[in-house]
Design a protein around this nucleic acid. Structure first.
Lengths: 123, 123
DNA sequence: GCAGTCATACGATAGCCGTCGTACTACGGT
DNA sequence: ACCGTAGTACGACGGCTATCGTATGACTGC
């Protein structure tokens, strides 16, 4: 087993998270995942951070359980990927997969969300 | 009150339909409206037709009431515009408004949906 | 080993949503 | 004036969903 960059290797403890394969991602589900203000906020934060973010790094006005719920929805619909690293769980956008499946979609959503935030935020 | 181009003038009978103003359209609501397979189908048909389509011109495997419901959701969230013309109701995408508010969003959704349809449809 | 931290699981609850059928309204043509 | 067609209104129903609180599990550091 040489260098395998795609296998979800288990660092140590490894609670393994289920992610849909790229070919199983559906646009309607992605849109549904993005159609919630809280989740849109999460996705925007992840896109801005470029790297990986701890769950708690994103401030949300909801309880911790609700937060977990939203992250799970995003993961199960193929929008983000999560992996455990010690006690924290790192989250990242699945940009490569999404861009290949639906080119321009994520960019459009992020740009639209930013424009709207700017429009509503400052005036 | 001179020439008022924005007033929803009543052609003759005029059951008037309420549409949100452009500045009231929210991206989360648009995404939600698009996140349903049936509605995505409607939007794709409208985009393909370029012009206006009768409600019944789009074949959907749902009852007439459900169809009405989906069209209303799309209208109330700012995705389509509807107006009565005699006994029929013509539907059209609000491309200009959507493209100005969220440039690239609709294109990304339509393209992604088409790619997915092609991917799933022929193999 | 024990406590603290980060996140999950589970159960509950209230609200929304997609779907339907039936009854009704509006318009156009004959 | 009437009928047919196109669409709406309304009520119902089952399922999903966003939210919460509390209890539990996993890992780190002392």
């Amino acid at each position: 087993m040489p260098t395998d960059t795609t296998s979800p290797r288990a660092p140590s403890g490894s609670r393994s998270l289920e992610h849909p394969a790229r070919e199983d991602i559906r646009i309607a589900e992605v849109l549904h995942a993005l159609a919630d203000p809280m989740r849109l906020r999460i996705v925007r934060a992840l896109a801005a951070a470029e790297g990986e973010l701890n769950c708690a790094d994103i401030e949300l006005p909801v309880s911790k359980s609700t937060c977990t719920h939203h992250f799970r929805v995003l993961r199960e619909h193929g929008v983000i990927q999560q992996l455990y690293r010690g006690t924290a769980k790192m989250n990242g956008l699945r940009r490569a997969d999404l861009d290949e499946l639906f080119p321009g979609l994520i960019d459009g959503v992020l740009r639209g969300a930013e424009l709207q935030a700017r429009r509503l935020g400052e005036e």
